[in-house]
Design a protein around this nucleic acid. Structure first.
Lengths: 339, 339
DNA sequence: GTGAAAGCGCTAACAT
DNA sequence: ATGTTAGCGCTTTCAC
């Protein structure tokens, strides 16, 4: 059932039906009576305009694409939720694609979304190389990067203040007397990790502590790898008295290692982790976290994207929005014990 | 840039270009040379067929819809991931919609997906009433329900064996000597919860234990509510010595309550929870869980859906696929102490 | 106030 | 081996 057959059924033209169904009956001064007729019949017959045909004709889909590296990571799940909610509020639908932490899959996702003529794209890139994003940039599709971003791409971007967050965590640990503070990182080629490491180093430097290479461990976004690296970290002769884990996944790996080694938090080791999670406060002891403003990140990303989509949009909305990170202090950190 | 202009540019007809771009050049015995021409030029000019126009013409979008109640629930996030992966492998794209645990939003999501002419829908209904699904059923769109299902709807469906899982948990607790076993439930009008409660009662009954209403607590899928109900549960004079939490969210609420009351697991209380999570093994003590085969559920749901989409599909693929739940025993359960 | 006709970009039936 | 034509369902310009 489509508009045309509905029109035939009612003995009027498709144009009129189309106009009324688009809610523009008054605008075209179509008789109230005719309007009511159409609307009533459409409702009872369950006729709704075909979005596909509509989009083809209008060359606009009212659809946004969202590409994230891993929907099973709670941070991205929360981000997706926020994006979806905001987009819905603005009348957009979201096409979600999971790049599975792979640039190849990411490229494929983007191609697919482009084929579907999305009106704009929110992208949390996997990281590493950005060569595969060239066609996207060239397509001039409205684009906002979020979380992980390639600064060189000069697109609108929304990130957490990863630098300040990491630095604050280190400051807090320094204040507690820690001098050997390790950092457990993820993929080094991700902007998020790079910024957090920068903040970590800045925190050390402020306190007059030397950055030690052996205290910068990790390199993968995986619980298993994080566990291994932490085990190694805890083996070193003068082992760290505090660890800053740069994501919730990494924190889980670190916690496994700590448990295996039989160490006690915070007596033997203080721990701070990025990403607030429902289970953080339930660990023994409760985990100190750096809460990212994930809800805001999603909302702002949609807003910044839609600002580009609007007809009169300036081409030059390239600014980077940086949102604050909040330290939630719990019992997983404590004063450095003599050692 | 589209096929037509590419055709003009090359001085050949649009049909030929279309046929070659669809990878059917040989089938139509188009000269190898012509094919190469077209493909090369398309590649360098970055021309790709418009999926919108293609879908309109073919009346098929190669798109599946997936509606889940809450993407920020790790169970559904994992499910979405599995569905996406499988669909991609079969050449489908997934449109994901989050119904935000609301039947109204669910109805809206479904309408939106229907408007976009998806080829099939995987639905994890919010639960409660199914009246709003009538138009969906009437549309005769290939449909598979997953996780939560309305049995009355007679569609293909994929669920975990919630009954057996809950029963096994109770059996295990009974074997440890527990007699006062409570159950912390979510929305009672969800088929998942109903089945788990049924399993809980079956487990009690098998052991000759009486079902006590006051030991069946909860009624909402929320950490905060679960905490409150658990607090009440632990206040009762002869309080339970074991609790079965029917989801990971509910377990988190229960754990908060236990911590607040200053009780020790498993000495004062044994705890088993549905849903395996990365943090379950890191709690003190590690949490005994009932792992759902979420990966399989997603995969099978896609397969069952695609079986309906295939041209020669039987209209009558209404069976319910039930996948096994696995008990992962950890230190959060122990023998009943004298009390 | 309403209708007829053209066209969005594609593919398939029917030419040759 | 390739081209011509019609039409998927919609919106919009132009006409009355």
């Amino acid at each position: 059932m489509n508009l045309k057959s509905l029109a035939q059924h009612l003995g009027i033209s498709a144009s009129t039906v189309s106009r009324v169904m688009a809610g523009r009956g008054d605008e075209f001064r179509i008789a109230k009576e005719t309007q009511k007729h159409i609307l009533d019949e459409a409702a009872t017959m369950g006729v709704r305009p075909d979005e596909l045909a509509r989009s083809l004709r209008l060359q606009s889909t009212r659809t946004l694409g969202l590409v994230i590296p891993d929907i099973s990571n709670p941070f991205f799940a929360a981000l997706a939720r926020a994006v979806e909610r905001r987009a819905r509020a603005l009348g957009y639908t979201v096409l979600l694609a999971d790049s599975q932490e792979s640039s190849e899959v990411e490229a494929e996702c983007i191609r697919m979304l482009l084929d579907r003529r999305i009106d704009g794209l929110i992208l949390a890139p996997v990281g590493g190389d950005s060569a595969h994003l060239r066609p996207l940039i060239d397509s001039r599709l409205p684009l906002t990067q979020v979380d992980r971003v390639f600064a060189a791409l000069k697109t609108a971007a929304v990130v957490a203040d990863n630098f300040a967050g990491a630095r604050e965590a280190v400051r807090r640990l320094v204040k507690l007397g820690h001098k050997r503070i390790a950092c457990l990182q993820g993929r080094e080629d991700s902007s998020v990790i790079a910024e957090r490491v920068r903040g970590y180093r800045a925190g050390l430097s402020e306190a007059g502590l030397r950055f030690e290479k052996k205290f910068l461990a990790g390199g993968e976004h995986s619980i298993a790898i994080a566990r291994e690296h932490t085990l190694k970290l805890l083996e070193t002769r003068s082992r760290p008295t505090a660890i800053l884990a740069l994501s919730n996944q990494l924190a889980l790996g670190a916690l496994e290692a700590v448990r295996e080694r039989g160490l006690v938090i915070p007596d033997d080791l203080s721990l701070i982790a990025f990403d607030e999670q429902p289970w953080a406060s339930l660990l023994s002891p409760p985990l100190t976290t750096l809460a990212q403003p994930v809800e805001d990140m999603g909302t702002v990303a949609v807003d910044r994207l839609c600002a580009q989509i609007k007809p009169g949009a300036k081409a030059s909305r390239k600014a980077l929005t940086k949102l604050p990170v909040r330290l939630i202090e719990r019992a997983s950190i404590g004063p450095r014990k003599k050692d």
